[in-house]
Design a binder for these strands. Structure first.
Lengths: 258, 258
DNA sequence: GATTTTCGAGAGCAGTGCTCTCGCTAGAAG
DNA sequence: CTTCTAGCGAGAGCACTGCTCTCGAAAATC
């Protein structure tokens, strides 16, 4: 195969440019770790890499563009960390172990990189809208937990929890469900995660689990659990367990292994 | 009754001071609504109220102190809105209606006041630590949902969900639970919300519900649900229903009413 | 070797939080 | 009613921010 673009012989200039770009991002990431995203100063970053602020603009058109680069990097880092956590479980059919490993991996990454986490899941920087390029890296972490659920379902380890029609109106529950989480269903289909029918209630439950995990981590990092949760490590495991069971895992018949 | 302190005859100076203070806060709140907390400019607020920036420092020692005032105001506003939503349900034994009303009230407030919401539940402003005075107003909204759960439990409307020992170790589940959520248990007791024993699993479930509600609202406001959840109104109701049932409400025997 | 592209430095603009000083004025004290 | 003082608003100023523009030097290209 012809190496068309990626490993094409870079000119010295290009190599230097890439290297300096990486240097800037690295310096920015360090500063981000010890101050919030809103506090990130382009001038300070410039000083760190031994440049004057205007020189940085040769590499990033604006502070927002630097933030976007950090965003992509952080999403990828989180995604990779979560994938690693899941992959570390040897028995691929031990969905409980995979679930715990992945969720703990997410939380561990967040605690280790609070600045990045705040950038990703905190309040958005005012006036800043993440461009489309950030979508794909953002999806990685979701895919990990989605795969556990879909594979678990395919393996018959899930008893899809009962849906309920206790909505405000007595209408047909499934149509309402399909409409509400239509995007997620389409997403799961487009990624080829499931062939055949997608149980809507499972989609809803997975969305809830996803939201709860990040909601909990955000609460922990942002100080909202102080006073209520005494042992955050233990609480998170408790949470992971409840979410796992609410998904329909570990139901009747699938005794756990110890 | 003697009016001891609150309506004590204020001097003209004090009245003027309070009025201007309120004016500043009001102006700040308006600016906050259309830009994030990090973007809130004390100088801009000063301009809005027809002052020069240094004059504002006669009323607030720093920008952070202004933010704290806004924080307290916002917490109180959210708390009041939620209390109103709950109180609007005439039948106090209709816990489902109260649950939906309260949760919807929280979300409605958040959507109507995104700036305030970001201030309360977004990433904290770097270097800013909310002082103790903000704790009490912050608690109001939690108390509303806590009351629904405790009253529901006292009324026998809840079948406390089964705990599970599927933790990492096979130790005694209840001791671990008690340790993890000890703060919450103590809180519930200190507020006199429950006399007698507090079912630990219910405490855990309530904490999870609380976290999930705010996690979902944060995700919605911060744009993380775009692409997955197509109808956010409907999804939130779906969520409220699942949380309600996971708490043990609407279990066997307590058929809902329509 | 001449030319064009690329890049870093520096000055500068408008904005920020915050401090300090200086008058004015309204309320308190006599 | 006069004197005095405490409180307040204005202004200048400092160090910082994001960002723009110009200029000179160096490197790649022709």
């Amino acid at each position: 195969m012809q190496d068309i673009s990626p490993p094409r012989a870079q000119t010295a200039r290009e190599r230097a440019r890439d290297q300096i770009t990486a240097e800037i991002v690295a310096a920015a990431r360090i500063r981000l770790a010890e101050s919030g995203p809103a506090d990130l100063s382009l001038r300070a970053v410039a000083r760190d890499v031994g440049m004057v602020s205007s020189a940085v603009y040769r590499y990033f058109a604006s502070r927002d563009e630097l933030l976007t680069a950090l965003l992509v990097l952080a999403y990828d880092d989180l995604g990779a960390a979560t994938e690693r956590a899941d992959a570390a479980v040897a028995d691929r059919d031990d969905f409980q172990a995979r679930w715990f490993a992945s969720l703990r991996g997410i939380r561990r990454w967040a605690l280790a990189n609070p600045g990045d986490y705040a950038l990703l899941y905190g309040s958005p920087v005012p006036g800043y809208a993440a461009p489309q390029t950030t979508v794909e890296p953002a999806v990685r972490v979701i895919l990990v937990i989605l795969r556990i659920v879909t594979e678990g379902h395919a393996a018959g380890a899930i008893v899809v929890p009962a849906s309920s029609d206790v909505g405000s109106d007595g209408g047909p529950g499934d149509a309402a469900l399909a409409h509400a989480v239509g995007g997620a269903v389409q997403f799961v289909r487009s990624r080829g995660l499931v062939d055949g029918e997608v149980p809507l209630e499972l989609v809803v439950r997975t969305l809830i689990a996803w939201t709860t995990v990040f909601g909990t981590i955000s609460f922990e990092l942002f100080g909202h659990l102080v006073g209520s949760v005494t042992d955050t490590d233990a609480y998170f495991d408790l949470l992971a367990d409840r979410l796992f069971r609410d998904l329909g895992f570990g139901g009747p018949g699938s005794r756990d292994h110890d």
